[in-house]
């Protein structure tokens, strides 16, 4: 009870989640932008409407190896490679759920710190806190749904 009243536990958690986020973000960034086989974002600017980004050879081979030689190499299919293997699917979904929880806690706890600094009225603080954590919970449910159902 004392911990929750002084918010010391959350203060401590904020630093722990922050440290975790550094490592998780490096992984996330590498997979989304640097890995030539599974990165869904390429080093290319697309300006034409309806045009899709061009993927590296490694990505094309990966998609065709998974989904057959006629498979289209679209952003969706590039992402789906990682989820096609059931073992990796579970690992990636687990990683992303953990990532989601850690990022939301860190972000919304930080946001609450900022809001408490500028909102002086106790009632205003309560409203801001309840509202922001409701948004966080909503995002958690939405995110969880996206992660779990991806590739179904």
């Amino acid at each position: 009870m004392a911990a929750s009243k002084s918010n010391a536990l959350n203060w401590f958690l904020h630093r722990i989640t922050g440290t975790f986020l550094i490592f998780m973000l490096i992984t996330h960034f590498w997979v989304q932008h640097y890995d030539h086989q599974v990165a869904s974002v390429t080093h290319e600017v697309v300006t034409e409407k309806g045009q899709m980004p061009e993927y590296p050879e490694a990505a094309k081979e990966g998609v065709k190896a998974r989904f057959g030689p006629d498979a289209e190499v679209t952003p969706y299919q590039v992402v789906m490679q990682r989820l096609a293997d059931p073992v990796y699917a579970v690992l990636w979904k687990g990683f992303n759920i953990l990532f989601l929880i850690v990022a939301l806690h860190h972000g919304f706890y930080g946001l609450n710190n900022v809001m408490t600094d500028y909102i002086r009225n106790p009632m205003g603080r309560l409203v801001a806190r309840s509202l922001s954590w409701t948004v966080a919970l909503g995002l958690f449910i939405i995110g969880l749904y996206s992660v779990i159902t991806a590739g179904w």
Binding site: S40, V41, T42, E44, V45, V46, T47, G50, Q51, M52, P53, T74, P75, Y76, Q77, V79, L100, A103, L104, G107, F108, G110, L111, V135, L139, I142, G143, Y145, S146, T149, A150
Partner: peptide, 29 residues
């Protein structure tokens, strides 16, 4: 935090390949 909200919201498009492809194409503008 603002980006996180937009990002999580945007990823709901993963449920539909067409929408997701359109979103990723837009991210390349």
């Amino acid at each position: 935090v603002v980006y996180l909200i937009i990002h999580i919201w945007g990823l709901t498009s993963l449920t539909d390949p067409e929408t997701f492809n359109a979103l990723i194409a837009k991210y390349h503008s």
